[in-house]
Simulated scan of single mutants.
Amino acid sequence: MAATIRANAPADWLVEGLNDFDMELCDIVERLEAMTPHRFPGDCADTHIDDLNQLLARIFDWADDSNVCLGL
């Protein structure tokens, strides 16, 4: 998912220091990139699926707030 977002989102949204940098989107993408089948970022008390579900909720909330169509 992170690779798809990086490939399709305007680069300015994901490069810190540029005018259109979006901290929320960048954080979501970086957390998705950090996930592996055996290691997930987030609170140790959360389960792996909880972390993924939270990131999915964040990306959909971000898209709604930013008026961005995810094309799903």
Score class of each variant (00 low, 15 high):
48 H>A: 13
70 L>R: 05
45 A>K: 09
62 W>N: 04
4 T>C: 09
35 M>H: 03
64 D>A: 13
10 P>H: 13
2 A>G: 13
39 R>A: 10
9 A>R: 09
68 V>T: 08
69 C>T: 07
18 L>S: 15
61 D>G: 03
57 A>V: 05
39 R>D: 07
71 G>R: 14
66 S>M: 14
18 L>G: 06
7 A>N: 14
6 R>T: 10
6 R>C: 06
11 A>V: 09
70 L>I: 06
40 F>R: 14
9 A>L: 04
63 A>Y: 02
21 F>C: 10
11 A>D: 11
63 A>T: 01
41 P>R: 01
37 P>G: 12
45 A>M: 03
49 I>E: 13
6 R>L: 07
23 M>F: 07
47 T>H: 10
71 G>M: 11
59 I>E: 01
26 C>F: 15
51 D>N: 12
64 D>Q: 15
38 H>K: 13
22 D>I: 00
37 P>D: 14
7 A>P: 00
56 L>V: 10
65 D>W: 03
65 D>T: 07
10 P>T: 11
6 R>V: 12
25 L>F: 10
11 A>L: 09
54 Q>K: 13
4 T>F: 12
32 L>G: 02
27 D>Q: 13
24 E>C: 09
10 P>Q: 14
44 C>K: 14
18 L>Q: 15
31 R>C: 12
2 A>T: 04
54 Q>P: 00
62 W>T: 03
14 L>P: 03
12 D>H: 04
59 I>W: 00
32 L>M: 13
42 G>S: 06
31 R>F: 09
55 L>H: 04
10 P>W: 08
32 L>V: 03
48 H>P: 02
62 W>K: 05
6 R>M: 06
26 C>Q: 12
70 L>D: 02
13 W>I: 01
1 M>D: 10
28 I>F: 05
67 N>A: 11
9 A>S: 13
6 R>E: 13
27 D>W: 08
53 N>G: 07
51 D>M: 11
44 C>P: 03
60 F>I: 06
47 T>I: 06
17 G>L: 09
68 V>R: 14
52 L>E: 08
9 A>T: 05
65 D>N: 13
14 L>D: 02
43 D>P: 00
47 T>K: 14
41 P>V: 00
26 C>K: 15
30 E>G: 06
59 I>M: 08
65 D>S: 09
28 I>K: 00
25 L>K: 00
49 I>G: 02
61 D>R: 11
11 A>E: 13
5 I>H: 05
52 L>G: 01
8 N>T: 14
55 L>E: 04
49 I>C: 09
41 P>L: 00
62 W>G: 05
20 D>P: 00
70 L>A: 04
72 L>D: 11
21 F>G: 12
62 W>C: 02
